[in-house]
Design a protein around this nucleic acid. Structure first.
Length: 401
RNA sequence: GGAGAGGUUCCCGAGCGGUCAAAGGGAACAGACUGUAAAUCUGUCGGCGAAGCCUUCGGAGGUUCGAAUCCUCCCCUCUCCA
């Protein structure tokens, strides 16, 4: 494959490459010397769920792997203790070592849905930071100035807005930067908000007299609310572990004006095809719903395959367009009769009895398509029936025996 | 160490002795509508088998018939001075 073609692949869906010429040089050199480039991406094992926004750079890593390069995943067991200050205005509570370990394992599992295991190197920060002494830490700190950090938006904003900013938090970019030294990264992937940290990596490598890494920055995927970046704390994310139907539904819940954005960064649809879709959308001849359904299919398909995507779509249409019941739903057996509110709370259809009463009052509870109006209803269960709460909660109630 | 400002329900933020389960906004949920779990409009939004009761306003005590509101001590955050 020629260089131009490679660059086209690499640049797809990428916001910025700093500096681009250096990347070209590295690719050339790598080819000449038959030496794969080391492409780094760091994760902080702070939770269980990986969302599809995280996977934007990960997919880029896979593309590098397919071009013969090595993916290096850094498990940020030290940075996880800090919590990435980037793009946040709050500190994060520290995690225990066990939590970190557990999270790391589930994270990797999810990343391997995209990555090529054989070309992935997993490294833990504790490999190098675990044995680092104070003298070395001071040395690393001395390479940056406070002004540099305060010039950085996230730090400055927190500082200016009078929000707490822990001393340890400014260590975050320094640790991340040193990771690049430790693993001899040629390239570091990340979302655009990572620019500062990744560029700090370049500086750090320079101080250690090694070739500087190239930053490849992906755009941030906007969350399902269509406003803020996809993130766990904002609960606007589509998780890798979400069931196909939920992924499908969540995509359908994005505002229409994000459709193209999602096509670009959350699917593998080609830029030419996306251009076509965009024209269709703009022309107004096509119902955006149909285009969004295609998007949802593409997203689900990427993680679960074509068949599951079809099923998810069929199910979605059943439930929301035809207002039918799903093919599969949780079951609950009842002996003779049960108080409706009790039924709803017992089965977790509602969190509290207050919520159950409220929903009944609002006309959200239906039994076999008949609205329940009385919150005192003693439901007699003599045959199978379907209880529906709102549009999305279903339960099949069956008589005992 | 000194001086000042703060900590309120999921989040932001008003309240400064009773009318406070606490304004307003956001999120969330529901209903209507629809082309979708889009958009828009409306409603709900601490718990309890519930016209009553119970628990909440950083923590622990106290004053009062009555405290998110006043007092004491403690914890935490921010600003300025050093």
């Amino acid at each position: 494959m020629n260089l131009e073609k490679k660059m086209k692949i690499i640049k797809k869906g990428v916001e910025e490459i700093v500096p681009e010429q250096e990347l070209i040089n590295k690719l050339k050199k790598s080819e000449k010397e038959w030496k794969p480039l080391r492409v780094k991406y760091g994760i902080d094992p702070t939770g269980h769920d990986v969302h599809i926004g995280h996977l934007v750079p990960i997919r880029k890593m896979r593309e590098f792997q397919d071009l013969g390069h090595t993916g290096v995943i850094i498990i940020g067991d030290f940075t996880a203790q800090i919590g990435d200050p980037t793009g946040k205005d709050e500190s994060r509570p520290p995690l225990t070592a066990e939590q970190v370990k557990e999270n790391a394992a589930t994270y990797m599992e999810q990343l391997y849905t995209v990555l090529d295991r054989n070309k992935t190197e997993v490294r833990w920060q504790s490999e190098w930071f675990g044995k680092m002494g104070m003298a070395e830490v001071l040395n690393l700190l001395g390479k940056f100035t406070l002004a540099q950090f305060l010039a950085h938006d996230t730090f400055r904003k927190r500082y200016e807005n009078g929000l707490p900013l822990g001393m340890h938090e400014i260590m975050y970019p320094i640790l991340q930067a040193y990771d690049s030294v430790a693993v001899k990264a040629d390239i570091e992937l990340g979302a655009t908000e990572q620019k500062f940290n990744i560029l700090a990596g370049r500086d750090m490598q320079k101080y250690f007299n090694m070739p500087e890494q190239v930053a490849i920055l992906s755009p941030l995927l906007v969350g399902t609310d269509g406003l803020q970046k996809m993130s766990k704390s904002l609960n606007n994310y589509i998780a890798v572990n979400d069931k196909p139907f939920d992924k499908y539904g969540k995509v359908m819940s994005i505002p229409d004006n994000c459709i193209i954005n999602y096509f670009n960064y959350a699917t593998q649809v080609s830029p030419e095809e996306i251009e076509k879709i965009k024209k269709e959308l703009d022309s107004g001849d096509v119902n955006p719903k149909n285009i969004k359904q295609r998007l949802a299919r593409e997203v689900v398909q990427m993680y679960h395959g074509e068949e599951k995507a079809q099923i998810a779509e069929a199910e979605f249409n059943r439930i929301f367009s035809q207002k039918d019941v799903p093919t599969d739903m949780p079951q609950y057996s009842v002996d003779k009769a049960i108080w409706i509110v009790k039924l709803l709370t017992e089965t977790n259809m509602c969190k509290t009895s207050g919520e159950a009463r409220r929903l009944i009052k609002q006309g959200a509870v239906k039994i076999d398509d008949t609205k329940v109006t009385n919150a005192d209803l003693e439901l007699r269960v003599e045959s199978e029936m379907v209880v529906k709460v709102g549009k999305r909660r279903f339960l099949k109630v069956i008589p005992l025996n």
